[in-house]
């Protein structure tokens, strides 16, 4: 059996792209949504976003939405697989937070 490559952490870019696609958006919309969600902390690079979208489409974590009116502007939506990946990631992050708070104590702000 090949080693699993599915257990690693998601990159911040991928995590937020998936989150932003719980409702359908096109490329520019994804960037804006992420900027808004993170209070302008995360601003994705154009090439980084493009690469991530291509990979996520390949993996089937997101899917394109066909809009006949303007086929130039492609919109995307998260798939069920994508949602289960996000849920898995949230669990992992919760563990990180729990352990961090417990050990680093009240020192964090």
């Amino acid at each position: 059996m090949p080693e699993s490559t599915e257990r690693g952490a998601l990159t911040e870019a991928v995590y937020y792209i998936l989150l932003s696609l719980y409702s359908q958006l096109h490329g520019y919309g994804i960037m804006q949504k992420i900027k808004e969600l993170t209070d302008e902390r995360v601003e994705l690079g154009a090439g980084t976003l493009y690469g991530a979208i291509s990979t996520l489409l390949e993996k089937g974590w997101i899917k394109p939405i066909n809009d006949q009116k303007d086929s130039r502007k492609k919109e995307y939506l998260i798939t069920e697989t994508g949602k289960s990946v996000v849920n898995g990631e949230i669990k992992r992050l919760e563990e990180l937070i729990k352990n961090g708070k417990q050990i680093a104590g009240g020192g964090y702000q």
């Binding site: 990159t11 911040e12 302008e40 995360v42 601003e43 154009a46 090439g47 980084t48």
Partner: peptide
């Protein structure tokens, strides 16, 4: 329109 980078993470 805000920051403009092509690559925002180390890998890319």
């Amino acid at each position: 329109e805000g920051k403009f980078d092509v690559y925002s993470d180390i890998d890319s």
